[in-house]
Design a protein around this nucleic acid. Structure first.
Length: 546
DNA sequence: ACGTGATGACTCC
DNA sequence: TGGAGTCCCTCACG
């Protein structure tokens, strides 16, 4: 049993103490060697539940037969008064003793006191900044209803709707995919017909100097980066799948994409929309990947599982089509410094090299890699012909000049992953390292400086990746300002975001009892400023900055 | 054996 | 009072 570090942690523990997970807690504790003696049931019995079942069988056999009143006592979970002890078997005395020891153990860790002391405490209220309820819920006005019976009419004969055809049925009634062609950039959270705030274009067009990178000792600058209530806001409605900083430096401008294809733009301290948040709906299914164009920072490219890749252009105030397939886009990256060519990966294990200067999909080149396993593509920062692909259990580096329709030969491979790999990224300055996040609970760093057929593994870091059903998968991502540090969300309590050096050394844990109380699955550093973002499962962005 | 798919308790307005 | 919002772990199944 871990020591309780904060009041909230203790409260969570207490709140979670249902009979089911109390059992689990005791089991966990026993692995740590701290637990009291476990209840000792007879060998074939695992739990009290099972016990009852097996007992029913045992009654028929002659060996374990017990008087009926003793059985009732067990089932009622009420202990007999002391005079009853005389009739208890040795097994039951041991059971009572175990219960007593368990009680003593639970008292010794102050669980019961903690229950009393922290009963009133709740987790901090989520930030009310950003999107509001009024905008989030569209109220449907229905005419008053009167049943047919009250209207004294014959009942209608209703028929079941026809069985849906096709193989893909999404949860809820998923809205139809947006039509192709430019979509107007109309925010859904402000009054209809209102224009984009002109300051947004101004901010996006701001001259960005790459050489203004602030290189400080990481430990120093991490501890200067703080969060406060102004730096948390609801930017999209649902769970965040992707998020990024705009490269501008005079203000902090962020973008996030959610589960239902919404894209939110948030300027910290902005006076437009809801606390600086503008919400758009360019897609209809999760926005898996997004990035601002480095050569045209008024453009934000966003990719969705619905099969569309669009380019939000603040200048033209539209979402343009960039690339479109029926379904299942997964990931993309820029292949040239001018951001005109892209590598786009889909669920079917195909990568397409897309040139944005030729409209439509006609000029794309499509290459099938390992089918159904592609999860991430990332281009080498200097040698743009190389891109790294996270496949099922291997990461491959391909040369885009050397791709075939099928069975392309990888330039180099990174081995050692034992489960599926969620992401793989080249280090930002030299590309001499590749950082991978794997479902086997390891973050790995490989040496790709020589591009030999097998790139050597340098570092392995244990990290809990079991995010389960309700959270976006964790991905370790480099700090673009330097070569050798990366950030990753964490399941640990109290909730935190961690920064590691490529050597495996933990540099900093970003925590805040007031403003960070959820898992931040999606994380990213600002390209030039000392700022870090984290997105959670309810559409909130959190910023740590100077 | 791994990837996939599945909820429920609680609070607040 | 009920519906919407918030948060997020493990396990069965094929």
């Amino acid at each position: 049993m871990a020591t309780l570090r904060t009041k909230r942690e203790a409260l969570v523990l207490v709140k979670e103490m249902t009979p089911e997970n109390l059992e689990a807690t005791v089991r966990r504790s026993s692995r740590n060697g701290l637990a009291p003696k476990r209840l000792q049931y007879s060998p074939e019995e695992e739990t009290p539940k099972k016990k009852r079942k097996t007992k029913a069988v045992a009654v028929n056999g002659s060996q374990n037969k017990k008087p009926k009143d003793e059985e009732d006592a067990e089932n009622s979970d009420v202990e007999h008064a002391p005079e009853g002890y005389g009739r208890l078997s040795a097994y039951e005395l041991e059971r009572l003793e175990n219960i007593r020891q368990n009680q003593a153990f639970l008292s010794s860790i102050n669980l019961f006191q903690a229950t009393e002391e922290f009963k009133q405490l709740t987790r901090p209220k989520p930030s009310q900044r950003g999107l509001t309820r009024a905008h989030a819920a569209v109220k449907e006005v229905l005419p008053p209803r009167k049943s047919l019976r009250l209207q004294k009419k014959e009942a209608e004969i209703l028929e079941l709707p026809p069985e849906p055809r096709g193989t893909l049925i999404y949860e809820q009634s998923s809205p139809a995919k947006k039509p192709s062609g430019p979509l107007p950039m109309d925010p859904v959270n402000v009054e209809e017909g209102s224009k984009l705030p002109p300051q947004l274009l101004e901010l996006c067009s701001e001259d960005v100097k790459e050489d203004k990178k602030i290189l400080l000792d990481l430990k120093g600058y991490c501890s200067s980066m703080k969060i406060n209530e102004d730096k948390v806001a609801k930017v999209v409605k649902d769970r965040i799948f992707s998020a990024t900083f705009h490269p501008c430096t005079s203000s902090l401008l962020l973008a996030a994409g959610d589960k239902w294809g919404k894209v939110g733009l948030w300027k910290l301290g902005g006076d437009w929309g809801d606390d600086g948040v503008l919400l758009f709906q360019p897609h209809t299914r999760p926005v898996g990947c997004m990035a601002f164009s480095k050569s045209h920072p008024t453009q934000l490219l966003s990719l969705s599982y619905d099969g569309s890749l669009r380019c939000m252009d603040v200048e033209k105030a539209v979402f343009d089509d960039v690339y479109d397939i029926e379904d299942g886009l997964k990931t993309f990256d820029f292949m040239s410094h001018d951001c005109s060519t892209l590598v786009v990966g889909n669920w079917y294990g195909e990568v397409a090299i897309v040139d944005r200067r030729t409209p439509g999909n006609s000029h794309e080149s499509l290459h099938t890699l390992d089918p159904k396993t592609l999860r991430c593509v990332n281009v080498h920062p200097l040698q743009k012909q190389y891109f790294v692909v996270a496949e099922s259990k291997v990461v491959s580096i391909y040369d885009s000049r050397n791709l075939k329709k099928t069975k392309s030969q990888a330039v180099s491979q990174l081995h050692g992953h034992s489960l599926s790999i969620s992401s793989a990224y080249f280090s930002p300055c030299t590309g001499n390292r590749v950082l991978t996040s794997c479902m086997d609970n390891n973050i790995r760093i490989y040496d790709t400086s020589t591009m030999t057929t097998k790139s050597p593994l340098l570092t392995t870091i244990r990290h809990d990746m079991q995010t389960g059903r309700w959270l976006t998968k964790l991905s370790a991502v480099w700090d673009p300002k330097q070569e050798d540090c990366f950030v990753v969300g964490s399941m640990m309590k109290p909730r935190r975001v961690q920064v590691f050096h490529e050597s495996g050394q933990l540099q900093h844990s970003f925590m805040d009892s007031e403003n960070l109380s959820t898992v931040l699955s999606v994380t990213a550093f600002h390209p030039t400023r000392n700022a870090l973002l984290g997105g959670n499962a309810s559409g909130r962005l959190h910023v740590f900055s100077d």
